[in-house]
Design a protein around this nucleic acid. Structure first.
Lengths: 201, 201
DNA sequence: GGGATATGACAATGACCGTTGTCGAAAACC
DNA sequence: GGTTTTCGACAACGGTCATTGTCATATCCC
């Protein structure tokens, strides 16, 4: 039963093949989530999309939610990095810094509409773990915005922080639902005006 | 098979009994949604809570989602009425009017924590129909806020409107999730500051 | 009181899906 | 070339739940 011996196959070691399959599944999961929504994304559908069988799904993930969380963490971290870099590229000028951050965020969503739909619209309600990731991500995002507007590391009033992040996300949701029909500048402008309340400590 | 004849039973006509069962099911649905969340609320559980059998569930609703939507419409309409009345009770003074609206909203949530959790946190993601009801409700809510701050009937910039409604709701979500631990005034204050951007047309 | 309707308890059905298991064929190693 | 590992296709099992059906009992009307 136990196979202690592994063998290279099609030029890759067992570990390499396993990781490749994992990546394939992540990509397929993202596609299927985007197409049918997380709730309607069955393990079977993800595996078909990946060209792999269910057996390999459970080799890499204990269940569907685990795959989702892995994707979500990855996407969130990348988003935060991009946004942070965009903010740091602008020196001085608080409004310009804040605008750069927001523009990076919305531009990133526009660049990848399918993941955007999943991770902005669905993510928060999928599970407590997903909710927590979303919460933490947006806490950091709002900290970046606060740093742009002021020199303070964080906004003191937690409700204000929460409100601004809610506004930024809701504008994103609406934009996505309407197929990105409004110009980028108009959504950035609106978010910028709202985020300006962070300047008042 | 077809029973054309109805008969009063326990002092009520067939129609009265049907409506009473419907109301009982709505109340039970609200309780069960609040307790287990919509996704884990089975028809069976709602019927048990209502003290009725599944047969009567399908007498009044084609499925679980239909019950939810009926409840959601009801709750949303009541909420809008309360908020509108609170706003109209304050004359002049834009900030005071806006504060009254927001205070009525958050106070209403606090007064009924269980429904609040369901209809603020879960509602938007349950189905496209539910999403639409939530969207329309908050569009009107934001119009009321706009009217408070300005004399314009609506805010011109749709993204700004969407952003403010997102902020108000996100503050509510966070407040609910933290068990209403912050004082009412602090959440109202934060929402008020953000909503003030509606004053700029 | 007797026949008819309303009700409640509960079984039956059917669908969906997660998860695990089987098995023959392809590719690797020696 | 034969043996072993790896792979892909797919069946099997079990669980949950929506939805419909059955039937005995309670309540009605006359």
């Amino acid at each position: 039963m136990v196979t202690a011996i592994t063998r290279t196959y099609l030029g890759s070691t067992a570990e390499e093949r396993r990781l490749l399959r994992r990546e394939t599944l992540l990509k397929a999961g993202c596609d299927v989530y985007a197409q049918r929504g997380y709730r309607n994304a069955t393990v079977k559908a993800i595996c078909e999309r990946a060209g792999l069988t269910e057996r390999y799904f459970y080799e890499s993930f204990p269940n569907n939610e685990a795959l989702f969380l892995a994707l979500f963490k990855d996407v969130s971290a990348r988003m935060l990095d991009e946004v942070r870099a965009a903010g740091e590229a602008v020196r001085g000028d608080p409004a310009g810094k804040a605008r750069a951050i927001l523009e990076a965020y919305y531009r990133g969503l526009q660049a990848e509409p399918a993941p955007a739909r999943v991770f902005v619209i669905e993510a928060a309600d999928i599970s407590p773990a997903a909710h927590e990731i979303a919460r933490l991500t947006f806490e950091r995002f709002t900290d970046l915005l606060t740093q742009a507007w002021t020199d303070a590391p964080v906004q003191r009033d937690p409700a204000l922080r929460v409100g601004v992040s809610g506004a930024v996300v809701q504008i994103a949701r609406d934009w996505i639902c309407n197929g990105f029909s409004q110009p980028l500048t108009s959504v950035v402008d609106a978010a910028l005006r709202i985020s300006a309340v962070l300047a008042e400590q």
